[in-house]
Simulated assay, not measured.
Amino acid sequence: MLDRTRLLAARLKAAGAQPYLATALYSLTVVPTTEVPTMGVDRHWRCYVNPAFVDHTPVHELAAVWVHEVAHLLRDHHGRADLLPAAVRHDHHRVNIAQDCEINDDLSALPQNALRPALFGLPDGQMFEQYLPEIPPTPHAPECGSGAHGRPMPWESAGATADAARVSPVEAAAIRRQTAQELRAHVKARGRVPGGWQRWADEILEPTVDWRRALTGAVREAASWASGAVDYTYQRPSRRGAAVPRVVFPSLRRPMPRVAVVVDTSGSMGPDELRAVLGEVAGVLRAVGIGRNRVTVLSCDADVHTVRKVSTVGDVVLDGGGGTDMRVGIDHALRGPERPHIIIVLTDGYTPWPDARPGGVRVIAGLVSADVQSPPPWIETIRIR
């Protein structure tokens, strides 16, 4: 029989030690079952508890296990696990170990055999997705339930309570946000919190947009816009001409977008960082379907130094190192033999910009500096972290 007094005393101790987690801790519904090895959670914020585990675990360690289990849910481990490649997600034991490493580096009261990054020679303070490639298979894997690794376990259907109590995804998002707000208030009133929780709260309250997705979306939209600029051409006569002898009808032409990438090579830009960003941009262009001889890269500081059509990042030559004026690079791209449909400018942003939008061209700025003023509103701006 489950010793609820002991279990709930441990939850009270956990909430007292980390009061900003109280809302989340008391949102968990307890489901007793002998099928779970220790404690585990499902996606619906139900906490499955083995009575024997409660009887043999000190209250201060039980309090840490409470925090550990609710951390899986607050950090949306099951949602993040769903985004892993299928071949990786299939090994849910390794996923669970990596998730435990993300959580346990901030927990000191857990049992001695708790999994921590140091056990695998890994540093503290990383996300489970970073730990996962370095986690070896182990026969003694934890089992924290679908609330962690995402795979439903047989013991998660145990008991009538499990069918009745359920936290919806919308309610879970509200709990996460309220917990993050309470953590920030705790920091202002009482001082520091574990670093992992601080980073988590910052991400919840000030989410960062993946710049790769943002850039892909911007390029895809611009490419769609350029492809829609259909025109008539006599290079390939229309098939309708067969119906009218001695009359040549033009056909419609849908151009493939041409892209110019203007790279800021002034003294304030590091070449290693630029090549890394260029590699990402090349991947974005390939994903959108733009490649081969459709991409021209211009290296520019206060003057244009190299202009090359490229098919791989290895073809790029970055010259420069002087002042910064991206207007020169944009103007040079516009005056080239093949006017681009899209201009992507990679810069730290410490540059003047053209006064007006060039006709028939979309301009996208990728800013690699966080504290610089944004370009004019007609330039779509992506901040690259």
Rank of each mutant, 00 (worst) to 15 (best):
A173H: 11
V59F: 08
V219E: 04
A243L: 15
L132R: 02
T179Y: 02
R192Y: 06
V368K: 09
I344W: 05
M1L: 14
A14V: 07
R166Q: 15
V247N: 12
S374L: 14
G241P: 06
G314F: 01
R176S: 07
A162K: 01
T208N: 06
R212I: 01
A370K: 11
Q18S: 11
P237Q: 10
A282P: 00
A356V: 08
V248G: 14
H90F: 04
M127K: 09
L367F: 10
H93P: 03
A52P: 04
M326G: 06
A114Q: 03
V230K: 13
R80E: 14
A160C: 07
S168T: 15
P245C: 07
V95D: 06
L2P: 09
V230G: 12
P358D: 09
A162P: 04
L119P: 08
V67Y: 00
N113M: 03
V36Q: 09
R246E: 14
H78P: 03
I204T: 03
D3V: 00
T33H: 03
V297F: 06
T161M: 10
D210L: 00
G283H: 02
R75P: 02
A164I: 13
G336Q: 06
R383S: 08
G320N: 08
Y20N: 09
T306F: 05
A214Q: 14
H60N: 15
D105K: 02
R151I: 12
Q112D: 15
S251E: 06
I384F: 13
V261W: 07
E273C: 10
R80S: 12
E182M: 12
A302D: 15
G16K: 13
Y232E: 14
W155A: 02
A164D: 12
I204H: 04
L84P: 10
